[in-house]
Amino acid sequence: METELETTRSRAQPLPPEDRKAMIIAAVIPLLIEHGRGVTSRQIADAAGIAEGTIFRAFGDKETLVQAAIETYLDPEPLRAALRAIDPSLPLEHKVRAIVYLLRERFQNVMRIMAVVGHERPPIPHERTEFAAIIARILAPEADELNWPPDRVAHILRLISFSSAFPALNDGIEFSVDDLARIALVGVAGRPFATYTPMTTAADAADQGEPGCF
């Protein structure tokens, strides 16, 4: 029969190296957002419930840990997985809302970490293409109802989500996820769009001494 001491020892087995690294990274991300690169190894150790020496054994130095945490935070795969999990058979309104919610959350997270640690890496071009392909598959059942092909609608949703994630651009006027989904679905008037042909071009206006429209 297993003794109490043996049970305690079996439950106190050290984490595998990769699991320990993941645990430390999870603890450091909120600290980075709060303190930026000024976060100390002592603060990290306290948050993770470990000794400072464990940090250096796992990562070598604090900067390596910070870089690993930033890469983890910016990893696009969790967003891709969340988008793939959206059921294409759901009503269009539900799908658009879910897409906008996930995209805006992603952009807010990226800007949050960039604000405190600076720009860490250039955008990866294929990320946008891959997101668009995933969203296009979600919207494919309604392709005939859309005003643009699903992959183009994906970029429209991305633009709406991206711009709404910048507090400075909103000038104190916040848009909820429901607001943004409604804008994407019905626009500002909710009626068919008539092709607009300007009566006066900017060049004509300049020739006539009229103020141009910018």
Score class of each variant (00 low, 15 high):
His119Phe: 11
Pro122Trp: 05
Glu130Cys: 02
Glu120Ile: 02
Phe107Gln: 10
Pro123Asn: 09
Lys95Ala: 13
Ala132Phe: 07
Ile124Pro: 00
Val96Lys: 01
Ala98Gly: 09
Arg97Tyr: 09
Asn109Ala: 11
Ile138Leu: 10
Phe107Ile: 08
Arg104Gln: 13
Pro88Phe: 04
Arg121Ala: 07
Asp87Leu: 02
Val117Asp: 07
Glu127Pro: 00
Val100Glu: 04
Ile86Val: 15
Val110His: 06
Gly118Leu: 04
Ile86Leu: 12
Ser89Gln: 14
Pro122Ile: 07
Thr129Met: 01
Asn109Ser: 12
Arg121Thr: 09
Ala115Gly: 14
Ala115Asp: 15
Ala133Asp: 10
Leu103Pro: 00
Gln108Arg: 08
Val110Asp: 09
Ser89Asn: 14
His119Cys: 10
Arg104Leu: 04
Ile138Met: 10
Ile113Ser: 01
Arg112Gln: 12
Tyr101Ser: 13
Ala132Glu: 15
Phe131Asp: 12
Lys95Gln: 14
Gly118Val: 07
Leu92Lys: 06
Pro123Met: 07
Pro88Gln: 11
Glu130His: 12
Arg84Met: 09
Ile138Ala: 14
Asp87Trp: 00
Lys95Asp: 14
Tyr101Gly: 01
Ala136Cys: 09
Arg104Ile: 04
Gln108Ala: 07
Arg84Phe: 02
Tyr101Leu: 11
Glu120Phe: 04
Pro123Arg: 04
Leu103Tyr: 06
Ala115Arg: 11
Val117His: 04
Ile86Lys: 05
Gly118Ser: 06
Asp87Asn: 11
Ala85Ile: 11
Arg104Ser: 04
Pro125Asp: 11
Glu127Ser: 06
Ile134Asp: 14
Glu127Asp: 14
Val110Gly: 01
His126Met: 08
His119Asp: 14
Val117Trp: 07
Glu130Asn: 11
Arg106Lys: 03
Ile138His: 08
Arg112Thr: 14
His119Ala: 10
Pro91Tyr: 01
Arg104Thr: 11
Ala132Thr: 07
Glu93Asn: 05
Val117Gly: 02
Ser89Lys: 09
Gly118Trp: 06
Arg106Glu: 07
Phe131Glu: 14
